[in-house]
Amino acid sequence: MALTLDQTQYDDIVLGIADHQVRMATIAAAMRRQGDPDAWRREEEAMMLMNILDALKHYDVDGDIFTDAEIWYQHELATIIVENCPI
């Protein structure tokens, strides 16, 4: 079943997750440059965001791969990852 989201709404969600991913990777990169022993944790979280982003990007909302619930779950997960990142 196609999503109830339209393509613009969907693309905005994906863009938001991409923003989260870039922020997390930026933090991870800075920590790695500084030799921070916890850098790997941020890198794992950046990887998780990348996994979510890879799943969602370039998707046509008329397709039937995802349900609305799956989209919102991944969006929520991406938000939680960023909110739990100590900056």
């Binding site: 998780m48 890879d54 939680i80």
Partner: peptide
């Protein structure tokens, strides 16, 4: 199928 993996498998916390 790979697109389906995060929604099915990933949870928080790590």
């Amino acid at each position: 199928m790979k697109r389906k993996m995060p929604a099915k498998l990933l949870t928080w916390p790590m």
